[in-house]
Design a protein around this nucleic acid. Structure first.
Length: 564
RNA sequence: UGGGGAGUAGCCAAGCGGUAAGGCACCGGGUUUUGGUCCCGGCACUCGAGGGUUCAAAUCCUUCCUCCCCAGCCA
């Protein structure tokens, strides 16, 4: 992708900036990026965008990308999140080339930096309470005013800061602040807090510290220490850039360039950690990895592939416009990927029995089936056929509407890979009117699904031989919300009011072809004419379980909907 | 009302003074032993609005409008 000048065909404004840096020789032509999650939640598809961007740029420019945990707040962070984040980044297919990094590894250096700023008179210890600090900060339109402690001498600040570290003061009693400008139009520059006192154990440093650095102070130092060249983050940090720059300039250390891009929003779902956490905690989903969640682990369980997610991230582009991408694009990406790779099999989700009257009782045979028409190397297999079969209940209509190309009394259809069958009659339960059995005849000369006389049939149906069928449980997943934008809730409504009651439908008496019982967890299939499914983690020989990843496109459903 | 950003099709998004790429969605049509896939065709006389500069403006200047972010000892 990159040419001799180490530039890259620019596909977005960030690569354009980096190309510019390549031309001027900034950073000696090196590119080092980083993905810096806080370990306080699971990764979601929005993070995937950032991951693909950072690792993608590193790879385009033959540089590297660090995986670094921004663990500066011990009370919000947990070990389990670290584990899951590492797993997800790996699963997406990225390699950070060395050990995982932690902001907490730099705590000592950060402390030295703070001391340095105190000595320069650029930082001071403040005794104001949280409430007072807020009052002194002013508002969006009014400037703030100086804290009474702003004029403390460096020696006093040094001593106080040291005692803060030693644990002599209770939580919240003092903070270390940068001395910048209390009247700045940018509120972040109004003497931001650099350190706060928290007597809390840290997941990595234990009780080694009782003061912890704030994001604005810490992040630039982390980037600097690692020699990051381009520090890519989301739009809401744009207001923080002057502060990022201020700290690095005052410290006089390596100064990466912060660049901001728009975070991803997706229709029919929510993306904020707070909301995802609420879905989990309120039991609306089974966990962070529920297949309906937009989390990486949820998508993985749902049957999404790393390749499809990477493709999606490439297609959505990178820009500074706030945007909400259509869920249909993500769905398109997974269909496209699975279309190439999924083995075609037959499964009947809502079975109704078919009896072929002229097929000899007790006889059975094997018919040959192509595994994947998109991939000849996938080979063929044999499927049992017999006198009694199951077909999809919705593939039969007693009184077929126009354009219904399936089975109906007197009509002939093809059973995929097998024979033409013609419906003679439907048997009903006299009390309920429900169809219990469809009686057909078959044409023995159409074996393989072809007729020598060239006659056309109405359509092709999938089926499963009843005596050979295995029972299976299938979970039909759908979009989690019924509204494109669940956040658009009006007065008194909240996003959970728009949860889709049909986002997960459990079917427990589906009939699948025998081979499917030995599917291993994670195996992907196309259930012919239905959609893409993957074997669930719980699947077993005796109790096969499948999750629907995504349905096939369904033009018949569209026609039917239109005619209603 | 202070500061910082953004407005190109239903949704993303190229475009960087020379006459609106591409993808998704949608609508036609063809192929088809999946109403899938695939293939072909249609989808912005106009770029938030108005003025101006220019032979020429989505691109430059200007005024206005709309939306997003910021007042955590969160990141």
């Amino acid at each position: 992708m990159s040419d001799i000048n180490n530039k890259v065909e620019s596909t977005d404004f960030i690569r354009e900036i980096i190309n510019g840096d390549m031309e001027t020789g900034k950073n000696g032509g090196r590119v080092i990026t980083r993905f810096p999650p806080e370990p306080n939640g699971y990764l979601h598809i929005g993070h995937a965008k950032a991951i693909c961007l950072n690792f993608g740029i590193a790879s385009d420019y033959k540089g590297s990308c660090n995986l670094r945990f921004d663990d500066t707040n011990p009370v919000k962070e947990e070990e389990d999140y670290v584990r899951s984040i590492i797993e997800d980044v790996k699963w997406l297919g990225f390699d950070w080339g060395k050990e995982v990094l932690f902001a907490s590894d730099y705590f000592e250096f950060m402390y030295e930096c703070a001391v340095n700023l105190i000595k320069k008179g650029k930082a001071y210890v403040d005794d104001l309470t949280g409430d007072e600090i807020r009052e002194y900060r002013g508002t969006l339109t009014e400037p703030g005013k100086d804290s009474p402690h702003r004029g403390r001498k460096p020696e006093e600040n040094l001593e106080l800061f040291e005692r803060m570290r030693k644990g002599e003061f209770p939580d919240g009693s003092r903070v270390l602040r940068a001395r910048i400008d209390m009247s700045s139009g940018n509120i972040n520059m109004r003497d931001p807090v650099m350190y706060r006192i928290m007597h809390a154990p840290h997941h990595r440093t234990g009780d080694g510290w009782c003061i912890y650095p704030m994001y604005d102070f810490a992040h630039g130092i982390e980037d600097s220490v690692e020699g990051i060249t381009h520090s890519i983050c989301t739009l809401e940090f744009e207001n923080h850039r002057p502060l990022y720059d201020w700290f690095l300039d005052e410290l006089g250390i390596h100064h990466p360039q912060q660049i901001e891009f728009a975070r991803l929003n997706l229709t029919y779902t929510v993306m904020s950690k707070r909301k995802l956490l609420r879905l989990v905690e309120d039991g609306h989903v089974s966990g962070w990895d529920d297949p309906r969640m937009p989390t990486i682990s949820g998508l993985r369980r749902r049957g999404y592939t790393p390749g499809a997610i990477r493709d999606f991230c490439e297609r959505i582009g990178v820009a500074k416009t706030n945007s909400t991408v259509d869920m249909a694009l993500l769905e398109h990406c997974i269909r496209e990927d699975l279309n190439r790779r999924a083995m075609r099999v037959m499964a009947v989700l809502d079975p109704v029995k078919v009896v072929i009257e002229n097929y000899p009782e007790g006889r059975e045979e094997l018919v040959e089936a192509v595994n994947n028409p998109e991939d000849p190397s996938a080979g063929k297999r044999e499927i049992p056929f017999s006198r009694t079969l199951y077909i999809e209940r919705e593939d039969f209509r007693e009184d077929p509407p126009k354009k219904f190309f399936r089975l109906a009394p007197g009509r002939e259809v093809r059973l995929k890979h097998a024979y033409y069958v013609k419906c003679r009659e439907a048997v009903k339960d006299p009390s309920t009117g429900e169809i219990t059995e469809i009686r057909c005849t078959y044409d023995p000369d159409t074996r393989g699904g072809w007729s020598a006389d060239g006659r056309k049939v109405m359509g092709t149906l999938h089926w499963v031989s009843a005596p050979h069928a295995r029972n299976a449980r299938v979970r039909l997943y759908d979009r989690l919300f019924t509204e494109e934008n669940p956040d658009s809730a009006g007065e008194g409504r909240t996003f959970t009011d728009f949860l889709n009651p049909e986002s997960c439908r459990n079917l427990d008496s589906c009939k699948v072809e025998p081979a499917l019982a030995s599917a291993a967890p994670g195996n992907v299939f196309q259930f012919l004419r239905l959609g893409y499914f993957c074997a669930d983690m719980e699947t077993s020989e005796t109790d096969p379980v499948f999750n629907r990843t995504i349905s096939l496109k369904d033009t018949w459903a569209k026609i039917e909907k239109k005619s209603r």
